[in-house]
């Protein structure tokens, strides 16, 4: 009790997500043609470790504590991970989207949920085309189940992590029609 989102909130998230996907489709060609910054080097599709480092950053990947780096005032994306920018995700084909989703779900199966992970999972779900391939179908169900397992262990219902887990469960179950996994308040 207190952890489960209201039906109204869930319906709103599905509507917003649907609008986000439409805008993504509309702007994809524009962003795909933009030059990437020179420091952005996207790993090859099959490079699981490379993608985990790229998305989550070397700090999270290597499980180092966040240390403030006073000498470097700019953001070092190699350390903190690249965010799912449109100029990056628009270049990913469906096979790559599915592979990276699989790599991050593998990661989440063993490690903590972080904001970086949440942003990438959301972005990859936004890029995932319907109808789902059987492989993607199984992956997103695995993702929602893992979110539920982690949510059960949450001690603080005001945690940002709780709302992120609720969001992912909601999108998988209600946007991608996996209703048996939906929260029924």
């Amino acid at each position: 009790e207190g952890y489960c989102p209201t039906l109204k909130w869930q319906q709103q998230q599905v509507a917003n997500f649907s609008a986000v996907r439409q805008s993504l489709a509309k702007h994809r060609n524009h962003w795909r043609s933009q030059h990437l910054d020179s420091n952005v080097s996207m790993p090859k599709s099959e490079d699981e470790e490379g993608w985990k480092k790229f998305c989550l950053g070397e700090r999270v990947y290597s499980e180092l504590d966040a240390v403030s780096d006073n000498e470097n005032l700019g953001v070092d994306y190699i350390k903190v991970g690249f965010p799912p920018l449109l100029s990056i995700v628009s270049r990913m084909n469906q096979a790559t989207v599915t592979s990276v989703l699989e790599y991050l779900i593998n990661w989440f199966g063993e490690k903590k949920f972080t904001p970086e992970l949440g942003r990438w999972l959301y972005a990859l779900l936004a890029c995932l085309e319907k109808p789902l391939l059987p492989e993607a179908h199984s992956l997103i169900r695995q993702l929602a189940r893992r979110c539920s397992e982690v949510r059960v262990l949450e001690e603080n219902k005001n945690e940002e992590r709780l709302s992120a887990l609720n969001l992912i469960i909601c999108l998988v179950s209600r946007y991608f029609d996996q209703r048996d996994l939906a929260d029924e308040p």
Binding site: A19, S23, L86, S163, L167
Partner: peptide, 27 residues
């Protein structure tokens, strides 16, 4: 709102996610 070109800058997906997460806390 998501159609507005200023919203659809390079970080649009990050903003959409952060807004969705914040909306639960504020609900």
């Amino acid at each position: 709102q998501s159609d507005a070109s200023d919203v659809w800058d390079d970080t649009a997906l990050v903003k959409a996610y952060d807004k969705a997460v914040a909306s639960f806390k504020n609900a």
